[in-house]
Design a protein around this nucleic acid. Structure first.
Lengths: 202, 202
DNA sequence: CGCTAATCTAGAACAAGTTTCAGACATGTC
DNA sequence: GACATGTCTGAAACTTGTTCTAGATTAGCG
């Protein structure tokens, strides 16, 4: 409805300190609940409770449960991105660097599978109303992959490859989270799709 | 939660004629509602109403909304599969045949984007409780792609490629449905991932 | 300080998925 | 045909996401 506590393009309305703290408490409570119980355990009333905030306030900060979880994903990726910039993958081959990067991300998510479940389900369930936020996540992922490839100004063809890699990563994550694909298969899928990287353009 | 009206592995309990008819009415009603309004327009009370069936009965046939929509997807893929067997893609190159096949599937879904939205959202939102059904859909998709590739006994490597193709297809579909990717981009993604097909194994 | 607008709280209310239950109906068996 | 069993109906109840409202608090400003 009215203002939103997050990301319109012109750098959000600037929260006061208490508001910033509230936002963090909410995100933390959400992560906590997601950590045990996954997507369905993140119940808005409980989040509000755990964050010491009224339900209406929670909805002012995050207009839906999906928004909340997507924001969580955004945070996680942010962390991952800076961590990766600190210690970038070492391999010579761009494809190997990307595969290593993705598997690192994957292992990070593995540490808290239920949280991962909640975030990923939210991401793929998000409808048009959440597009800007989902897009932000997508751009972050793209940035991470491009970093790993060592590209500053990718061509159209390279961007298509990156998109396919992201598609694969997302979808493989989902099938793993719902128990339909093993970790070994995920690794294999990632290695497979990464072969596209050093392929000549058609 | 006693019996279920669908798919234990040993070929479901055999429905009577009236039951088969009910099942079809339910699926039809679901498709109808999804056709306008997408995922959220498929309201269980309305489905039951439109199918001329009590709510409890609906839940006996499909234990959740997601089950219902996944079953719909399964039906659609069934149709597509037989249609494709009748008129298989013509190209010489396996990669082109797969790309053509997927774009045909894509166009079929395009005809009813809201129905597609409902089915795909259900697929990716499905949790472990729906795994068998989602798996059935996955196997169908695999069969379709393998058919297009002209493979009877794929190697491990080829199966990995097929999985990556499916990942890409699913995820590209989602991004298109939520308006974050254009049709041209989807086509490009599909063409890109299909290049994996005639790549030598590493 | 005192005013005003925005924000926050508590709690009720609403919507849609899901569960439950009592009674009616159908099916198959003797 | 009558019984036993399983299925279907209609309606209420329960759960959880979301919205709304009235009153308290807070923040910014003169």
């Amino acid at each position: 409805m009215g203002e939103m506590a997050a990301e319109p393009r012109p750098t959000a309305p600037a929260l006061t300190e208490r508001q910033e703290a509230r936002r963090r408490r909410i995100l933390h409570a959400g992560a906590q609940l997601a950590g045990r119980g996954g997507f369905e355990a993140v119940q808005m009333r409980e989040v509000a409770d755990a964050a010491g905030v009224a339900l209406g306030t929670l909805y002012r900060y995050f207009p839906s449960k999906v928004h909340l979880l997507v924001a969580l994903m955004q945070e996680q990726l942010q962390h991952l991105h800076t961590a990766l910039r600190r210690r970038p993958p070492a391999a010579d081959d761009p494809a190997q660097r990307v595969a290593e990067t993705l598997m690192r991300a994957f292992r990070a998510l593995q540490r808290d599978p239920l949280l991962a479940d909640a975030m990923v389900r939210a991401l793929t369930f998000a409808d048009r109303g959440v597009s800007p936020e989902v897009d932000a996540v997508s751009r972050l992922t793209t940035a991470i992959v491009l970093d790993a490839m060592g590209l500053e100004e990718p061509t159209q063809g390279q961007l298509a490859v990156v998109r396919v890699i992201e598609h694969t990563w997302h979808s493989a994550l989902i099938t793993w989270l719902s128990g339909r694909e093993s970790i070994a298969q995920v690794r294999r899928d990632i290695d497979t799709v990464c072969r596209l990287i050093d392929l000549p353009e058609p």
